[in-house]
Design a protein around this nucleic acid. Structure first.
Length: 287
DNA sequence: CAAACTACCTGACTGC
DNA sequence: TGCAGTCAGGTAGTTT
């Protein structure tokens, strides 16, 4: 399940293997994967043909690939959703089961490869952002992520302390800070010994500073290990799985002993998904 | 305006 | 063996 570390692994792979390549052909095999491109699949394919990828950027879980011709200043915008993958493959490789969009590329030395968007659950997708080379307007509302050099911790703490929502819900709100999903939210809260149901406006600034430090650490740790992978749905740009799941302390560990105190990890329903926490280390707020 | 809820999607898995 | 039900969860859009 791609969160920020996984998306960053993909971005750096694209930077290495796709920047500088020219798009010679686009095949949209599943309309839903380009649904964010309002003009439709045919227009998407026609607009990309002949263009050259000049960079690979990221904010939170969004990726974009600015294209040549600075006057146009457009970019391919991508989100992996739940199960999306971007794979660089030789043209001879068999089509993947859930191959949705295929970009045929010609690198500077004339070699042909393919950038393939593969996505089982089709929550992800590609689109063309007309003026989005610097920051696509479609994601202007997405806050900076904790690994961004210009991440404004004081601003984020201020936002949290003015909200009556639970802290886990706030960590998942991409307009407050971006890049954190269910897995890393649970891990950071476990590290900080804070229960996800505690209200933002009832947390001390010092505790929030520590929590955001843990968020940064857990994202950084996962990034150094190449991202998390649970079910082979996520693989990086060359098809390699991450292995951070072995280092998780809370997420997915229901009934297993807490690594700090031995109390069994609990699982509770939360926003149509699950939250995992240690009921001893992370004291729930009064109802 | 903030906060909370729902639709979207496929495949692995569980229980009868 | 088959089949219905559950679960995984990020985001946009809708409702409260």
């Amino acid at each position: 399940m791609p969160e920020l570390p996984e998306v960053e692994v993909v971005r750096s792979g694209l930077e290495r293997h796709v920047v500088g390549a020219r798009i010679t052909r686009v095949d949209v095999l599943h309309e839903r994967s380009v649904r964010r491109h309002a003009a439709g699949a045919t227009a998407f394919a026609e607009a990309l043909a002949g263009r050259t990828v000049v960079a690979a950027r990221r904010r939170g879980k969004y990726l974009w690939l600015p294209l040549d011709d600075a006057r146009r200043g457009d970019a391919i915008l991508a989100h992996l959703g739940m199960s999306g993958q971007l794979l660089v493959q030789p043209v001879t490789a068999r089509p993947e089961r859930h191959l949705r969009v295929r970009l045929t590329l010609e690198s500077a030395d004339g070699a042909a490869t393919e950038l393939r968007f593969v996505d089982q659950r089709t929550f992800g997708g590609l689109s063309l952002s007309p003026g989005g080379a610097e920051l696509p307007t479609e994601i202007a509302h997405i806050a900076r992520d904790p690994l961004d050099p210009e991440f404004d911790e004081a601003y984020v703490i201020g936002r949290i302390r003015r909200s009556a929502s639970g802290i886990k819900r706030l960590l998942l709100t991409q307009t407050v800070l971006s890049g954190v999903g269910n897995i890393y939210a649970d891990e950071a809260l476990w590290r900080a010994r804070i229960h996800g149901g505690r209200r933002g406006d009832r947390l001390r600034a010092t505790d929030l500073r520590a929590l955001l430090g843990h968020v940064r650490d857990v994202l950084g740790d996962a990034l150094r290990q190449g991202g998390t992978s649970f079910d082979a749905l996520y693989v990086n740009v060359n098809g390699q799985s991450g292995y951070f799941d072995r280092s998780l302390h809370a997420y997915g560990r229901v009934d297993e002993p807490c690594a700090r105190c031995g109390t069994p990890i609990r699982r509770v329903a939360f926003m149509n998904r699950s939250s995992y926490f240690c009921p001893a280390c992370q004291r729930p707020p009064r109802a």
